[in-house]
Each structure stands twice: as C-alpha cells, then as structure tokens.
C-alpha cells in the first residue's frame, strides 16, 4: 500500500541551513548534508530544500550542495527556491535532485510548467502554491506569501495540474507558523478536485495535526520544519502514532 509521506523541510541560505536547529549531536548543525543524513536515518520519507539565497553565486552554491546531498542521502529530495528556467532545473537534476519545486516563476509564466514537464517529465516537477484567505476566498500569494495575486487557489491548482505538474505543495499562509494544524478544509478540496498528489504545508504543531491532515485533509504527504528541527516531534514517534490510527506509513 502506498504510504503517507513525512517530509522535513530545510531552509537554505548560501549553502547553510537558516533556521536554528536543535541537534546537539550534530557536528555542524548548519550543514544541510549532515541534517539531511540525520533525517533520512530517523525515517523521513523525503526531504525538501528551500533555497532563499539572493547572491550572485547562488546557483553554483546550490548545485554544489545538491551534489553533496545526493552523494550522502539514500532517500529522495526536492529542491526549490528561485527556480525560473529549464537551465536551472537541468542543473539541479544533473547534480542529483529527484524533484524540483517552482513557485512564483510559474505564476508569472505558467508555460514554464508545460516546458519543464515536457522536458523532464511530470514526475519531477512540483509546483508550490502559497495562499491565504482574503474575504473568505483563497488567493495565491507570491514572494513567500507577501504579495497577493488575483489568482484563486483552486483554479490555479487545476491549471497547474492541467499543465503537467506531478505534484502540488500547498502552503497555507494563514496556518504557517501558528502550530495550530494544517488547512485541512482547503487541502481536502484540492484532493477532491485534482488527481495528483498534494503535500500539506503550514501549521504543524503536534502529532495529531499530522493525523488530521492525512484523514480530514486527505493529504498525500505532510511537510514541516521547526517541529522537526527543534525535536518537538520525533519522526519515529510520529509514524508509530499515525500507524496506531490506521494511517499507512513506512516504519
């Protein structure tokens, strides 16, 4: 049976992890490769690296990091952040990334999704969508949720699927950072209206939130950062608890 995926997300700046992490047993908690290795051994199903660097050398630094991760880690990983062209994606896949995630650049140029899916296959193209509710309507936002657009979440998600994305990573800006649970209602609607996998992101605070997003939110995977980085939730405990609630997980 296909299992639900648990996906730790690492924010990267200039080749280093950004948010503080609480791993006392790590030689270098700022090294994404070491952290990735720890997570893969702890039972993470997949990893996401989100690059937020803005320097001239960012592409080279990121490519180098991807290569080092691929060398060390035996589970799949996705790389996102600032990806806007076929060349960007080609370089990341060549260096060993399994999937890439595109966000703002797809909103600005939707044809990019068709081009990437056509060239590299849908299976490695994740489209990340950040959205929050304005007057009760889910609106797509850009630049990490700062800039609102006129796009409706569900219409955009459908278009993304039609253009060939293999998967959607949906972050609710209303829930992100609240530790109050995922946006299960919107997630369930996405799963109902679309036929590609949906990764839930934003709002993880405790183990029950994960169970809820898999059952009520019908999510295929759940992404979180700080609850894992600060060891508030251990992946093994999380999966054991999910299994008790009859949610299929890889243990």
């Amino acid at each position: 049976m296909l299992t639900k995926r648990i996906v730790p997300c690492l924010d990267i700046k200039n080749g280093r992890t950004v948010k503080g992490v609480n791993f006392v047993d790590l030689r270098d908690a700022g090294d994404p490769v070491e952290l990735a290795d720890v997570y893969s051994k702890a039972g993470a199903d997949e990893l996401v690296f989100l690059d937020i660097s803005a320097t001239e050398e960012r592409r080279k630094t990121l490519a180098n990091l991807v290569l080092r991760v691929a060398e060390k880690v035996n589970i799949p990983f996705t790389v996102g952040g600032g990806i806007s062209s076929i060349e960007d994606v080609d370089m990341l896949l060549q260096n060993g990334a399994d999937k890439v995630s595109v966000n703002s650049s797809a909103v600005k140029n939707p044809q990019l999704i068709n081009d990437l899916a056509g060239k590299f296959g849908s299976q490695c193209i994740t489209v990340a969508i950040d959205a929050k509710q304005i007057d009760g309507k889910w609106k797509v936002h850009l630049v990490g949720g700062k800039v609102p657009t006129e796009l409706d979440l569900f219409e955009w998600a459908k278009e993304v699927e039609d253009r060939g994305a293999g998967e959607i990573l949906f972050t609710s800006m209303d829930h992100d950072g609240t530790k109050d649970g995922f946006a299960n209602e919107a997630l369930a609607r996405l799963s109902q209206e679309l036929n590609i996998p949906i990764i839930a992101s934003g709002g993880a605070g405790n183990i029950q939130h994960f169970a809820d997003t898999f059952i009520e939110g019908k999510a295929d995977a759940a992404l979180a950062a700080s609850v894992f980085h600060f060891k508030e939730i251990e992946i093994k405990n999380l999966k054991t608890e999910l299994q008790k609630q009859n949610i299929p997980v890889r243990l």
């Binding site: 049976m1 998967e167 036929n195 590609i196 295929d220």
Partner: peptide
C-alpha cells in the same frame, strides 16, 4: 487509471 492519483509518488511495498 484515475481511480488513483497519478503519478504514484512515494513509498509502497
């Protein structure tokens, strides 16, 4: 077929 989500992505047995 579309009884399942396509692509299948993840860990199976």
């Amino acid at each position: 077929d579309n009884q399942v989500k396509v692509p299948q992505i993840g860990w199976n047995q």
